[in-house]
Nucleic acid binder design. Sequence first.
DNA 1: TCTCTCACG
DNA 2: ACGTACGTGAGAGAC
Length: 398
Amino acid sequence: MIYVLADMEYEGVLIDHETLKEFSKVLETDIGKLEKTVYEKAGVRFNIASPKQLGEVLFEKLMLDPKAKKTKTGQYQTGEDVLLALAAKSDIVRDILDFRQLQKLKSTYVDALPLMVNRKTGRVHTSYNQAVAATGRLSSNNPNLQNIPIRTERGREVRKAFIPRDSGHTLVSADYSQIELRIIAEISKDANMMDAFVKNLDIHTATAANVYGISLEEVTSTQRRNAKAVNFGIIYGQSAFGLSQSLGIPRKEAADIIDNYFAQYPGIKQYMSDTMNFARENGYVCTLMGRRRYLRDINSANATVRGFAERNAINAPIQGSAADMIKIAMINIHREFKALNLDARMTMQVHDELVFDVPHHEVEIVKPIILENMKNAIKTTVPIMVEIGSGVNWLEAH
DNA sequence: TCTCTCACG
DNA sequence: ACGTACGTGAGAGAC
């Protein structure tokens, strides 16, 4: 793996300066407008980027919430969830949320990435760390290329600035579909969930049909949304409280959904209790490939501390097995590219996605190599699906 | 250097 | 009564 990562780091990625420079100006203008509006609505100039000052303005001057909560250091909480709850009745809060989003984009990505370009190569060279994440995932720093925006319209603009090395190349991106849910199906051998993947169903729709006892065609968008939240929450050991918070529904309703979920997927319930028992007796848990995560707090007398360790015990084999799988795929793809003397290069890894810089004439050669190696990295019963695309920038390739 | 916030899977 | 979903890295402010 070291050799693969070294080659990726040396290779680096090309950034389109002009796109980012232009975007930075646009953001600066928009941020300036938002600042002005916020000052007018607040009746005072202050540093919006300071959580301390912002909390005082919102909760002492404007009295937006008499029951505003404070952090353990005595500051008002001004996190996104807090502000979103106030946004419905206060347009200054909506402006502040917009300000935050744009400020983050500008300072963390749009202005910072060009400064990371290497003088000699003209490219950005991240570091991939193999021994940071406790689950076996990689991490990336200087700069972090594993958290480039994608969820919002304006965030996606940043991805357009990640481009091939020249006009003779194209970016190819391949990502695993629902890899963690496939792995929990594989590890738990739950018949119902395996069946959904074997039939290549939309897993969240299939889960909704199971949980609500209806046919696939009858599933509403709300039911699918609820099922999706449970599918994700389960991977992390989420409680009824947590599910009710994330969906904005009563705790009783969340508890019913979870009960139905475990009734439909008894193998997953079994996996969770087996894994916790294993951890209690052995002090560690294992991935499919035998990687261990030690859990020193698994038998702690402190329920909160123990709860954290228990959720780690459930999550680590899932997240860690997915990490093992993509690493094996990377080694095999790297080896095959070398053997065939290809000019295509692997340039980025984002947990379930690989990105390549490929000469046009090699695109149709590398696609099957990438697909086969990603799908077959580890022998599984559950089918593993990979989506692949190409384009003139990272957003288009995705 | 710590805290808070927020970007990603 | 308490806390409540896992894994990261980075920027800005405050001290």
